[in-house]
Simulated scan of single mutants.
Amino acid sequence: MLSQLVKSHLVKASGKRAFATTVNENFLPKKYGGKYIVTLIPGDGIGKEITDSVKTIFAAENVPIDWETVELSGVSGSASQIDEAVLSLKRNKVGLKGITYTPSSPFAKSLNVALRKELDIFASLVLIKNIPGVPSKLQDIDFVLVRENTEGEYSGLEHQSVPGVVESLKIMTKYKTERIARFAFDFAIKNDRKLVTAIHKANIMKLGDGLFRSTVKEVGLAEYPGVEVKDMIVDNASMQAVSYPQQFDVMVTPNLYGSILSNIGAALIGGPGLVPGANFGREHAVFEPGCRHVGLDIKDKNVANPTGMILSATMMLRHLGLDPYADKIAKATYDVLAEGKAVTPDIGGKATTTEFTAAILSKLQS
């Protein structure tokens, strides 16, 4: 199980905690000519622009990575693309990914969900913390969302029993809840976190969310006595997140609640373009922005904020044991944000994506 293989360590960035995960070398991609081969999935919307920013920075710093690019699109793609992406990640073990668009059509499947299910990438990790220089109404925010990625409301099991009546199945299992709970508690211990809060709606969904709530608490009390465990109803947690987010340390959630809270968290610290994230399975790791916005409305306008993607890419470098590159790129990114001279419109600036990337390159060369 991943939670038994993971070694996490702290990396200091701008005086705040940052996070990385490295795994047993058996689960890392092989090196060819001294370089790792990493799957790159630009995705839809602004995906190509922000992954191009990462590619430009990595090339300038001679980061020992070669990209295997796979096109995966919910807008114009074909069913064969998901198979190609799965095969590439099975070969390479590690990927960097933009977000793919999911149409609202009843016959359209989410490629994001399909990829996670095919590879059993069960744990989503989203880092929510203030960034110096970025305007925010609340300060001292520093919490982590651990989201179960493969079941719950995203099980995708729906049918219309009679016209006008739809049944949608929410699947919750003890096995997968124990697995995500152990991931959350392991992360807490290895990153000096003191509290894990299980988010649920067990007052209404007494069996499904009740199972999630009780299982997380059982795992915590039985196996991780050094970490405090609490639980909170999701609607209250949403209110608490916008009124007193400093109370949270690690939040562990079923699928849908994690998606909602990651968006709330992104709003707290300045917007979706700032949030890094990662997804872990038994053998595979896929790094992508933690707030999963496609950005179709700003595609090709050169105004997207690539911060979340760049910081996700530095998490990937630490996962691969390439800490010096990760530290240098993360510091340059934080320095540009702190100065505020070349930042994108979403956080009050006037710089383009290209200009923001150039400012990071300038910091790296200075």
Rank of each mutant, 00 (worst) to 15 (best):
T22R: 14
N302M: 05
S214T: 11
V38S: 04
A285Y: 11
R318C: 10
G308I: 11
V303Y: 07
G277T: 04
T39R: 10
G156P: 05
R179C: 01
A285D: 01
A123H: 11
I37S: 13
N62T: 09
V75L: 14
L40T: 02
S238A: 15
K230P: 00
I128D: 12
G349M: 05
G349N: 06
P64D: 09
A184V: 06
A237V: 07
G45D: 03
S104P: 00
G295P: 10
A237W: 00
N191I: 02
M315G: 07
Q139T: 15
F19Y: 15
Y36F: 15
T307V: 15
N255W: 12
T353D: 09
H293A: 14
R116T: 02
D66F: 01
L195C: 10
N255R: 09
A338N: 09
E158S: 15
I50N: 11
A313R: 10
S53F: 06
N302E: 03
G133W: 06
V23H: 11
F212C: 09
N263A: 10
P29D: 04
M172W: 00
M309N: 04
L211H: 02
D327K: 13
Q160F: 15
D120N: 15
G277C: 04
G208M: 04
V162R: 12
L87V: 02
I264S: 05
K12F: 05
I65Q: 03
S73V: 12
I329C: 13
P225N: 05
L322C: 06
A267S: 15
L207F: 13
R91A: 13
S168P: 02
G208E: 12
T69N: 00
